[in-house]
Simulated scan of single mutants.
Amino acid sequence: NYLQVMLAGYYGDLNPKLEPRIQRCIIRVTDLRNQIGDVVDLARMRPEQIQADFTWFDLSEIGTQAIEDVRLASAEKNIKVLVEAPPVFEPLVGAPRRMRQVFSNLLNNAIRYSPSGSTIIFKAWFEPESVFLSVEDQGPGIPEEDLPHIFKDFFRASNVEGAPGMGLGLSIAQKIMEAHEGQILVENVVDDSTEGKVKGTRFIVIIPRNLKTPEMRQTTWLEQG
């Protein structure tokens, strides 16, 4: 926070040469904080705790917050986040803070493994029973033999061993979605014009539209009782 206050100029004009260095410091500190938070989450996260926080929320607002979470990281690599979404979202039930964590984790992953100057597509669409969101990057893809293990705790794909990270972001995201009775799917994006060469990775988040807040569940229980 102190670095962000400096970057905003609240302590006076900032030397232009220092600005990119402070931005990099903020990104590194944020990465470290997220890694510590991931370890704590892994130890403490329980489905019933997440479900206790279910409330009505605005999906577009959560998506906007997640994009802001990764703004500096994407700017450092000159990566553009392209949003494709309906103009209006219906309210959903879920744990807003945890859903933001899912989207931020997926966007951070996409930025981390994408080449500089590339584009990430953050897309949302509605189906009768679920809401779908996808994050598609232009990175190296995930080796086919690693795909079945990608959501395991501490797992790192074999082609990104030198990249930063602890292998917890996707595992935590999946646990959050399981608490929402939803799913995260992953697939490599293939370029048909180059004989099936992988041109990126796509993660798809599926959120049921029939989830209930604790108050709604209690009302249902009383009516059935």
Rank of each mutant, 00 (worst) to 15 (best):
Y2H: 13
L3H: 09
L7E: 11
L7I: 04
Y10W: 11
Y11S: 15
D13M: 09
L14S: 10
N15G: 01
L18F: 04
L18E: 08
E19R: 14
P20Q: 03
R21N: 10
R21G: 11
R24T: 01
R24S: 08
I27S: 01
R28F: 08
T30K: 10
T30N: 05
R33W: 08
R33H: 08
R33L: 13
D38A: 05
D38Q: 03
V39A: 10
D41M: 10
L42Y: 08
A43D: 08
R46G: 00
R46E: 13
P47D: 09
E48M: 07
I50G: 05
A52N: 10
W56N: 09
W56Q: 10
F57V: 04
F57Y: 03
F57P: 02
F57K: 03
L59P: 07
L59D: 09
S60A: 07
G63K: 02
G63L: 03
I67V: 15
V70I: 09
L72N: 07
L72P: 02
S74Y: 05
A75K: 07
A75P: 02
A75T: 05
E76M: 09
K77N: 06
K77Q: 13
I79D: 00
K80I: 09
K80F: 13
L82S: 15
L82P: 10
E84M: 12
P86L: 10
P91E: 08
P91W: 00
P91K: 04
P91H: 04
L92N: 06
L92S: 09
V93Y: 05
R97Q: 12
R98K: 10
R98Y: 12
R98N: 15
M99Y: 03
R100C: 11
R100P: 12
R100L: 13
N105A: 07
L106H: 00
L106F: 00
L107R: 00
L107A: 05
N108S: 09
N109T: 04
A110C: 08
R112C: 06
G117A: 06
F122V: 10
K123Y: 04
A124P: 05
W125A: 15
E129W: 08
S130Q: 14
S130G: 08
F132D: 14
F132C: 14
S134T: 12
S134G: 11
E136G: 12
Q138L: 06
P140W: 00
P140M: 04
P140F: 02
I142G: 03
P143C: 07
P143K: 01
L147Q: 12
L147P: 13
P148V: 03
F154H: 14
A157V: 06
G162K: 01
G165I: 01
L170W: 00
K175D: 02
M177Q: 04
A179N: 03
I184D: 05
L185H: 12
E187A: 14
V190K: 13
D192A: 15
S193N: 11
E195H: 13
K197I: 01
V198H: 01
K199S: 07
T201G: 04
T201E: 01
R202Y: 01
I206M: 11
P208N: 02
N210I: 12
L211Q: 05
P214M: 09
R217L: 12
T219G: 09
T219L: 15
T219E: 15
T220S: 13
T220P: 11
L222S: 15
E223W: 11
G225L: 14
